[in-house]
Simulated scan of single mutants.
Amino acid sequence: MVNQSNGETPSVLMVDGMALLFRAFFATSWGGAVKKNREGVPVNAVHGFLRILGDAVRRIKPTHLVCCWDLAGGSFRAEHFPEYKGNRPEAPDDLIPQFELIKTVTESFGILNVSAEGYEADDCIGTLARRFAQQSEVFILTGDHDLLQLVDERISVMIMKKGAGNYAVYTPAFLLEERNLTAAQIIDLKGLMGDTSDNYPGVRGIGEKTALKLIQEFASIDGILSNMENLPAAVRKKIEADLDMLHLSRSLATINCEAPLNVELSHCTWIVDRDRVTAICEKVEFKDALRWIG
């Protein structure tokens, strides 16, 4: 079964795989009990992943689907800043076997899995989103606000919120309305304030409130640096003391939209084989398969 868009512009749903999988795992293991199949393999994250994605599929009705993944071994960013993501805890033991299992499941659902050695899922998403937006509408499903830098007239970013089926769908207009920022300014904001989750500091002593005020006043990091004489002395001193880290943090925050991916829109056409879906759902004991395949 190929999902059709009634002859209109194709629609691509791009999935931030790890973001969904981690969210699904913690949402279904908070009580300490992790669901396992009859073979003793944990499947709670797989089930949660499919429910989250299934809801988005019913909402978007995409003609094309692709799921992007991080690979073990890190990315080029760690070569420039060895501490990058160095504060991340190890994945829970019950989640680890689900990393490869979910890829088998998504493939069985007719979804293309994509990754690139030395690049993050964000880079794969950015590369394909920009490529596909030339001929289709693109929707990115994630919990990662870094991906807001990709928002444009043909690319919407769906940020998962608490509650099933609850998303904030960011278009350029909504991003400007909610945060008074453009997509490009998301990068410069992160360059200034850093990112504790990714473990890079930005300018020490400048937090989100100050960073936001500076970006809104001077439009960009370049605008700030061109108006150093107009900054409060304390802020100017902090930026001058951390200028190299400011530039490095902005680079680390920037999604690379030139990842080496030999993937075209036609490769992501969503085709569902009912027998394959039924078989994999039986293996992972997922009982909601009919909500996917009708």
Rank of each mutant, 00 (worst) to 15 (best):
26 F>A: 00
18 M>Y: 14
21 L>Q: 13
237 K>R: 11
94 D>L: 11
222 D>K: 14
258 E>G: 01
218 F>T: 00
252 L>I: 05
284 V>A: 00
135 Q>K: 13
259 A>G: 07
124 C>M: 03
60 I>P: 07
120 E>H: 11
249 S>E: 03
171 T>C: 03
272 V>F: 00
237 K>P: 04
30 W>F: 15
246 L>Q: 01
22 F>D: 07
219 A>S: 13
131 R>H: 08
219 A>P: 00
6 N>L: 13
36 K>V: 14
251 S>E: 06
46 V>T: 15
159 I>R: 01
242 D>S: 13
55 D>V: 08
39 E>Y: 10
89 P>A: 08
123 D>S: 00
250 R>P: 11
144 D>C: 07
49 F>W: 04
125 I>E: 01
246 L>W: 03
228 M>F: 09
11 S>E: 07
267 H>V: 11
125 I>Y: 01
97 P>K: 08
67 C>N: 06
29 S>P: 05
145 H>R: 15
103 K>R: 15
112 L>I: 14
11 S>N: 07
260 P>G: 02
51 R>A: 09
2 V>K: 11
37 N>R: 07
275 D>G: 05
33 A>G: 02
145 H>A: 09
233 A>Q: 08
140 I>N: 04
264 E>T: 11
37 N>H: 14
164 A>P: 02
100 E>W: 07
164 A>G: 01
29 S>H: 05
238 K>W: 05
189 L>R: 07
259 A>W: 09
85 K>E: 03
71 L>K: 14
